[in-house]
């Protein structure tokens, strides 16, 4: 009975022997047990195979620089009283008076309109008119996205929304937005949609 308990204990420690996180004392205990019992060595080999498979899984496309831009913007807004992202997004719904109709129309066009409680609307800056709302193509790379934004002196001022919309704003306030939107629409490999509020 005692041997069974000891073996069970070693079996439970084996995954952590494989990932190298045991204390020196635990490691010594596991290694001594493996020398006595070759099936424990096989168990460890199998766990190593599982670990290798888990590690080989393809990387997920994370928000990356876009997420950082979003975080930076929230922190810049009010460093002392930052709101959590979702609360903030809901607040924007209320303050998005000038652009709401256009955005809802856009949502409807995209076929992604959702019940009011679930709507995650884009942020509204103090000057909605100075923004362009875009949706990037799902396969666009971050490098090409960054390059295009830099080329046109554009910054992301909000997004992604729940349906993947971003709000872009030109650095130059005198930019002709209609003209710029037209140029962006021609970048069909980058943008899926380009709309003015």
């Amino acid at each position: 009975m005692s041997e069974q308990v000891d073996r069970q204990h070693i079996l439970e420690l084996l995954p952590f022997w494989v990932n190298g996180t045991l204390s020196p004392e635990e490691r010594g205990m596991v290694e001594a047990a493996m020398e006595q019992d070759p099936t424990l060595r096989q168990e460890a080999e199998m766990l190593a195979l599982i670990r290798a498979t888990v590690k080989e899984q393809p990387e997920m496309q994370s928000p990356g620089e876009l997420g950082l831009a979003r975080l930076r913007r929230v922190i810049e807004e009010d460093p002392q009283q930052v709101l959590d992202g979702r609360s903030r997004a809901r607040r924007y719904i209320l303050s998005f008076s000038s652009g709401l109709a256009a955005a809802l129309a856009l949502l409807a066009v995209l076929g992604n309109f959702r019940a009011s409680e679930d709507v995650y609307e884009l942020a509204s800056s103090s000057d909605d008119a100075a923004n362009i709302v875009v949706m990037f193509r799902p396969d666009v790379t971050q490098a090409s996205m960054s390059s295009l934004l830099q080329m046109h002196d554009l910054v992301i001022v909000d997004g992604p929304s729940a349906i993947g919309l971003y709000r872009l704003s030109p650095l130059d306030p005198d930019t002709d937005l209609a003209l710029l939107a037209g140029v962006l629409r021609s970048e069909t490999e980058i943008f899926e949609t380009v709309d003015l509020p």
Binding site: Q61, I75, G85, R86, A162, I163, G164
Partner: peptide
């Protein structure tokens, strides 16, 4: 992915 991006943002905040 979108909800996960929101949660990620919340974690950093």
């Amino acid at each position: 992915p979108f909800l996960s991006a929101d949660i990620l943002q919340d974690v950093f905040l």
